[in-house]
Design a protein around this nucleic acid. Structure first.
Lengths: 239, 239
DNA sequence: GAGTGGTCTAGACCACTTC
DNA sequence: AAGTGGTCTAGACCACTCT
């Protein structure tokens, strides 16, 4: 006999079910999950099967486990974690934590290209946020961020935006960014931006286009950043 | 009683031992390993413990497993695998496989900076290889590659270099690149290189500095690439 | 001491490959 | 039919945390 096309190992089914609970907010960030034994009992599988599902979720950084304490929903609000996707470094050096100044924030209709990338209806509205990030009091990055209002209702009503937006997304909207896709180009800095970065016209800068993906797999935010690469580099470790 | 500082779980010890065998070439790429049962017997542990070590090595792409057939040493000579670390793409598009022309190859003493990055003695020699890579018959990348002769003896004696050097490293020198560190900058194209890429002087290009790491953790190759980013982007998925 | 996750074992059954 | 890896279970013991 051959297996039906819909067959899934037990541990995978457990993984899917637990992930679904995280997505719908049944368990909130930092919350303690039931123990392996309790989950196994509830779901009618063995403790080892639950463990395999949990360990996979830990590997994907959805959960964190501590021996003797329990299993917790990952909270991406640690310094180290907030800048998990921030790839700008000093050459061969240390992580740079930038300060941030918001230039502007406005609502508008989504563009055709944005709608496609964000999988939105063409009639939806987005917030366009412009900000400058400085390192050691030197402006280094200017970025434009696109946030769909259907995903982040009234996000432009926030009087104070945190340095790391992903923290706001998680705490206020239940959006947990699990991965990003970056496309990096070298371009001459756009005339309108040269002044903001204290660079002469025509300077080469990194242009980084990013799509950010929620735990449920949806692209929920787009950004375009222009970075002076005189003192900073885009740094990645690939395995 | 407290555990001694040197304590390691059994599966970790098995992992270390098997990894050591790979590093020293005891098992060669594409070779079939003994079955879980045989390894368990040889090492005096249970089959489940061996499995845990093997699965970790699979996750790190050192091994590959096929149900019904066995466990094999990963062979990084598949098209998909050869370009595992090649990050240039058409915007939002498909992988680009470049053709390659060697410009020059010469021996010289290692520079101070290179010696540091490669962890070499300052008296050692390296091969400096320059090549141009084209995509769709348009020159797109010019790169300088530094190969220590102590690691790659007489590598400059090869009459024909493959498109993907990592294949040569594995097949001829037993060097398997397991990870790379990239630093990406935007710069004006160096005058000497503009002609090779058919670009006007002063054009902004991506400069990608790479360190490549062997299975044993040593940095074994350095490269610096200049890439026209008119038609290509440096593309990464971060998780 | 009670409860948690971490490790290790042993054995069963399954699906896939090869002969 | 024999051998392989893949899944699942059950139970043991350990180290860690909290009370």
């Amino acid at each position: 006999m051959s297996l039906s096309a819909g067959f899934q190992p037990l541990y995978k089914q457990v993984y899917d079910l637990l992930t679904a609970r995280l997505v719908e907010g049944y368990w909130k960030p930092s919350q303690l999950l039931p123990s392996e034994m309790l989950l196994a009992e509830e779901l009618g599988v063995s403790q080892g099967t639950v463990r395999k599902a949990l360990n996979q979720m830990v590997a994907e950084k959805m959960l964190e486990r501590q021996q003797g304490k329990g299993t917790f929903v990952a909270e991406h609000t640690q310094e180290s974690d907030l800048f998990r996707f921030f790839r700008l470094r000093e050459p061969q050096g240390t992580t740079l934590i930038p300060e941030t100044i918001v230039l502007s924030s406005s609502r508008r209709k989504v563009s055709k290209d944005e709608a496609k990338k964000l999988n939105l209806d063409s009639k939806e509205s987005v917030v366009e946020l412009m900000r400058v990030r400085s390192i050691h009091n030197k402006p280094a990055i200017i970025e434009k961020i696109i946030q769909p209002l259907s995903i982040f209702p009234d996000i432009d009503k926030n009087t104070k935006l945190p340095n790391a937006l992903y923290m706001l997304y998680q705490e206020q909207y239940g959006i947990t960014i699990m991965s990003v896709n970056d496309e990096v180009r070298a371009v001459e800095i756009p005339k309108a931006y040269a002044g903001h970065l204290d660079l002469p016209q025509g300077s080469p800068v990194l242009m980084i286009e990013r799509s950010s993906v929620n735990i449920d797999g949806r692209v929920v935010e787009l950004s375009t950043a222009y970075c002076s690469s005189e003192n900073f580099v885009y740094s990645v470790h690939l395995t």
